[in-house]
């Protein structure tokens, strides 16, 4: 494996009570890349994301990000190291506005302990003003500014995906994990999302995404990895992966089961 990888997954196995979700999976994500992860339902894609985001710990193997192992770290440390994510089933904070979601994303930058918050130190107020400006700039970039003060539960699904993305970007990630960013979106929204992801890559954010929509992922990713039944089936440029007989078989196989 090359030395210049941002994320290296090394022979990772994850078992839940004996049920093997991932078995000896190795792959890498290079900086500046948009990498796609595909595979039939239950292949272990979200499990792999949860391992990278430190929401789960691998049963065996190692995950190395920027040269340091993520194994054993709590999830908030992954965010501190520069890994941000969105969720397959959108995870928002009910009752909070769109702006507040981004401000929570900027939590790390507030650097304010509970004591400083309880006393509302002047430094905190100054930081708060700066964060607010930054949050608004971010919302503006994602065309969410008109909804800044709107509670999220009143928003349509397509916007929620973008709110999640805004919140993740607030972390200023080096690596962005997108778990099915296109699901639940209409074709126009999907196109806009693809455009947005490309823009992020151009700014230097590395993107690793799980996506079911083949047109979307093949058009977007520089490289695609395929998981099936917890194992890495193959890896390579989209065109090559698409033609791979093993991939075709895996997807047809799924079709037979269904």
């Amino acid at each position: 494996m090359s030395r210049d990888s941002l994320l290296r997954v090394e022979r990772v196995t994850k078992a839940f009570d004996g049920l093997v979700a991932l078995s000896e999976v190795s792959l890498e994500v290079r900086p500046g890349q948009i990498k796609g992860l595909i595979g039939p339902n239950g292949a272990g894609k979200t499990t792999l994301f949860n391992l990278i985001a430190c929401c789960l710990a691998p049963s065996a193997g190692d995950i190395v990000f920027c040269g340091r192992s993520l194994v054993g770290l709590p999830p908030h440390r992954a965010a501190e190291l520069g890994i941000a994510r969105t969720f397959q089933n959108v995870q928002v904070f009910p009752g909070m506005t769109v702006l507040e979601h981004v401000l929570v994303g900027l939590h790390r930058q507030a650097r304010a302990g509970l004591a400083a918050c309880a006393l509302q130190t002047v430094r905190l107020r100054r930081t708060e003003r700066r964060l607010r400006e930054e949050a608004e700039a971010l919302l503006d970039r994602l065309d969410l500014l008109p909804w800044a003060e709107v509670p999220v539960e009143t928003l349509p699904f397509g916007l929620l995906r973008r709110v999640e993305l805004a919140r993740a970007l607030a972390v200023r990630p080096k690596l962005l994990l997108l778990d099915e960013p296109g699901s639940g979106l209409n074709p126009t929204e999907k196109q806009a999302m693809s455009q947005l992801v490309r823009g992020l890559r151009d700014e230097g954010i590395t993107v690793f995404l799980v996506e079911h929509d083949m047109t979307m992922v093949m058009g977007l990713a520089d490289e695609v990895a395929v998981l099936d039944h917890g194992s890495l089936l193959c890896e390579g440029p989209p065109q090559q992966v698409q033609r791979d007989p093993r991939v075709v078989a895996a997807y047809l196989g799924e079709g037979d089961d269904a």
Partner: peptide
Amino acid sequence: RALRALHGSELAAESVG
């Protein structure tokens, strides 16, 4: 804000640090 966020989704609150 962080308190309200973890009330809504601990998973998402953790994911932003």
